[in-house]
């Protein structure tokens, strides 16, 4: 555990809590992509199956359970409790265009051809693209509430900090996880355009982020 890894995890947790509280308090999931949240729930489910097979640490177990619970709680707020506020018209990204290539790639490029490893690989690849329905939705509607952009900022910062964590671990431990690193770089690239808009429009301006 190093400072980049820990702060990355904290940012990840903060992002998920921001989104959950935003929906809970406003009793609305307007502007939120239910598809992205479903994909994240699928990411956590397929990655954390090792909860049943391996014990790493109390920290590791607790965080995995918290992420799983919050992911499914968020999905249920969007699709059940506050379903009426869900903008399915704007959430029109075709997730099969992500799921099919990601599933195919995880069978082709993995560390070992076992169910748990393939599912872990699938979750890593899927996470790198899971935010695309949300970014697509913002592009389509042309705006995002500032609280939604704070969520995206922390979610993007989390994987960016993991990149620093992997550089650190490579130097300190000789640890290099090719699948996670390459996917993490791809994932971070997707946020670059958003980061730019976040700093130039949300933090310097006020209220909503509107696209040109």
């Amino acid at each position: 555990m190093n400072i980049f890894r820990l702060s990355g995890d904290v940012c990840h947790l903060v992002a998920i809590i921001i989104l959950f509280l935003k929906i809970w308090r406003s009793k609305s999931c307007a502007g939120i992509s239910g598809k992205s949240q479903l994909l994240f729930a699928l990411v956590f489910t397929t990655r954390y199956l090792d909860l049943f097979t391996a014990f790493i640490s109390i920290y590791n177990t607790v965080m995995k359970v918290v992420f799983l619970v919050l992911a499914y709680a968020t999905v249920s707020l969007i699709y059940f409790r506050f379903r009426k506020s869900y903008d399915s018209e704007s959430d029109s990204f075709r997730v099969e265009f992500l799921l099919v290539p990601v599933a195919g790639l995880s069978f082709l490029e993995n560390y070992s051809f076992t169910p748990l490893e393939i599912l872990w690989t699938f979750s890593i690849y899927l996470e790198s693209v899971a935010i695309l329905p949300q970014l697509f939705m913002i592009t389509k509607t042309g705006e995002a509430e500032s609280i939604t952009t704070h969520y995206l900022f922390f979610l993007g910062l989390y994987r960016t900090l993991y990149l620093a964590n992997w550089v650190w671990r490579y130097h300190e431990e000789g640890f290099f996880d090719q699948i996670a690193v390459v996917s993490g770089v791809v994932q971070t690239i997707f946020y670059c355009d958003f980061f730019y808009l976040y700093f130039t429009r949300v933090l310097r301006g006020s209220g909503k982020m509107t696209l040109p």
């Binding site: 890894r5 995890d9 990840h12 090792d50 391996a54 790493i56 640490s57 590791n60 965080m63 995995k64 992420f67 560390y111 070992s112 490893e117 872990w120 993991y162 964590n165 640890f175 290099f176 996880d177 090719q178 699948i179 996670a180």
Partner: peptide, 10 residues
């Protein structure tokens, strides 16, 4: 191996 080590990350 890498396949085992990566499990400590979230």
């Amino acid at each position: 191996s890498t396949a085992e080590n990566h499990k400590d990350e979230l």
